[in-house]
Amino acid sequence: RDEDEKEKIKEALKRGNEDKAKEIAKRANVSPEEYERLRKEAE
């Protein structure tokens, strides 16, 4: 379940949809550090 959320965040970031990614991260309680890591992976 947690991994699904992280995949959704990465997908949103790949599409350049940072607002959606942040919204998912907030809902999934993803830490800022984890969010940054996902953002780097998505580049």
Rank of each mutant, 00 (worst) to 15 (best):
P32C: 07
A28M: 07
P32F: 10
A42E: 04
E23P: 01
R15N: 15
L13M: 09
R1C: 10
I9E: 02
R27S: 10
I9V: 07
L13K: 02
E11C: 07
A28I: 14
A28G: 08
E33W: 00
V30K: 02
K14V: 09
R15V: 14
E43D: 09
D19W: 04
R27A: 13
K10G: 00
R15K: 14
E18W: 05
E18K: 07
K40E: 15
E5K: 08
R39P: 03
K10D: 03
K14N: 07
E23F: 00
R15I: 12
E41G: 05
E33P: 06
E23G: 06
R27I: 10
E43R: 10
E33K: 04
V30D: 01
A12F: 06
K14W: 01
V30S: 02
E3P: 11
R1Q: 14
E33M: 04
S31D: 10
P32L: 12
I9C: 04
R37T: 08
I24Q: 03
L38N: 01
A21E: 01
L13V: 07
V30G: 01
K8W: 07
A12V: 02
R37K: 12
E41F: 04
V30W: 04
V30C: 06
E43Q: 12
R15W: 09
E3D: 13
I24L: 07
E7I: 14
P32T: 11
R37M: 08
E7R: 13
A25C: 04
K22N: 07
K8P: 02
E3F: 12
L38I: 13
A28V: 08
L13Y: 00
A12L: 10
E11W: 00
A28H: 11
L38R: 00
L38Q: 01
I24F: 00
I24A: 04
D19Q: 14
K10I: 10
V30Q: 02
R37H: 08
E5I: 15
D2A: 12
L38H: 01
D19F: 05
L38Y: 03
R39C: 07
K40V: 13
K20S: 10
D19I: 12
A28E: 06
D2G: 12
E3M: 13
L13T: 03
K6A: 09
D4E: 13
P32Q: 11
E11V: 04
I9W: 01
I9A: 03
Y35I: 06
E41K: 05
R1D: 15
K8V: 06
K40T: 10
K22H: 09
K10C: 06
A21F: 01
I24E: 04
S31C: 05
K20Y: 14
K6Y: 15
E33N: 06
E43I: 12
R1A: 15
K6G: 09
R1I: 15
N17M: 13
L38P: 00
K14Y: 03
R39K: 14
G16E: 04
K22C: 05
P32A: 13
N17K: 07
A42N: 06
G16Q: 05
E11R: 05
K26Q: 13
E41V: 06
E33I: 05
E34W: 02
E36D: 11
P32W: 11
E41P: 01
R1N: 15
K10W: 01
D2W: 13
E33H: 05
D19A: 14
A28Y: 05
R39Q: 10
K8D: 08
R37P: 00
R15A: 15
A28R: 06
S31P: 10
E18Y: 08
K40R: 12
K6I: 14
K6S: 09
Y35C: 04
Y35M: 11
E43N: 09
A21K: 00
R27T: 09
N17T: 06
K10R: 06
R27M: 07
E23D: 10
L13F: 06
L38E: 02
K40Y: 08
K14C: 07
R27D: 08
E7G: 10
K6P: 06
E23W: 00
E33F: 01
I9K: 01
R39G: 06
K14R: 14
D2Q: 14
S31W: 04
E5A: 15
R37I: 08
K20F: 13
K10M: 05
E41Y: 03
A25Q: 08
E36N: 04
E5S: 12
A25I: 02
P32Y: 11
E34Y: 00
K22D: 06
E36H: 02
L38C: 04
E34I: 03
A25K: 02
A21T: 01
A25G: 04
S31T: 12
V30R: 00
K20T: 10
E5W: 15
N29E: 08
I9Q: 01
K6M: 14
E18A: 09
E36P: 03
E18C: 08
K22S: 07
D2Y: 15
N17Q: 14
V30P: 00
K22Q: 12
E36F: 00
R37F: 07
R39S: 10
D4I: 12
K8M: 12
E3I: 12
E3A: 13
D4T: 11
N17D: 15
E23C: 07
A21M: 01
E11P: 03
E3N: 13
E5G: 07
R37E: 13
L38W: 02
G16N: 06
I9T: 02
E33T: 05
K6N: 09
A42S: 08
A25L: 01
E36S: 00
V30E: 01
E34H: 00
L38S: 01
E33S: 06
D2S: 12
E18T: 10
R27P: 02
R27Q: 12
K26Y: 03
I24V: 06
E36V: 00
V30H: 01
R37D: 11
A21W: 01
K40H: 13
E11A: 07
R15M: 15
R1H: 15
D19G: 10
L38K: 00
P32G: 10
K22R: 14
L38G: 01
K20V: 14
R37Q: 13
A21I: 01
Y35W: 09
A12P: 00
R15Y: 09
E5D: 13
E34C: 04
E34F: 00
Y35E: 04
E3G: 12
K40F: 08
E33Q: 06
S31I: 04
D2F: 15
E7P: 05
S31A: 08
E3Q: 14
R15P: 03
N29K: 10
K40L: 10
D2I: 15
G16L: 04
N29S: 09
L13S: 03
D4Q: 11
A28C: 11
A12E: 13
L13P: 03
D19N: 11
K22G: 06
A28D: 05
E43W: 11
E43A: 12
Y35R: 02
R27V: 09
E23Y: 00
E41T: 06
E34N: 01
E11L: 04
E23H: 06
A25Y: 00
E36A: 03
R39N: 06
D2H: 14
E7T: 13
I24N: 02
R39A: 13
R37N: 11
K26I: 12
K22L: 13
E11K: 05
R1Y: 15
N17C: 06
E18M: 10
V30I: 15
K20N: 08
D2V: 15
I9H: 01
E36L: 03
N17A: 11
N29V: 05
L38F: 02
A12H: 13
E5L: 15
A42L: 09
A12N: 08
D4Y: 11
P32E: 15
K20H: 11
G16Y: 02
A12K: 03
E34V: 01
E36G: 00
K8T: 08
E11Y: 00
E34S: 01
K8Q: 14
V30A: 03
E11G: 07
E43G: 08
E43F: 13
K14L: 10
E33G: 06
K20Q: 14
R37S: 10
I9F: 02
A21C: 04
N17Y: 12
K40A: 13
E3S: 12
R39E: 09
E5T: 15
A42M: 10
R1S: 15
D4N: 12
E34G: 02
K8C: 07
N29T: 05
I24Y: 00
N17S: 08
E11Q: 07
I9M: 05
L13I: 14
K20M: 15
E18L: 10
G16P: 02
D2L: 15
K20W: 13
L38T: 02
R27F: 01
A42P: 01
K26R: 13
K22E: 08
K8F: 06
A21D: 01
I24K: 02
E11I: 06
D19S: 11
D4C: 10
E11H: 06
A42K: 02
S31V: 05
E18G: 07
K6C: 06
E33Y: 01
E5F: 15
P32D: 15
D19K: 12
G16D: 05
R39V: 14
V30M: 11
E43Y: 12
S31L: 08
L13W: 00
G16R: 04
R39H: 09
E3L: 14
G16I: 01
A42Q: 06
N17H: 13
K22F: 07
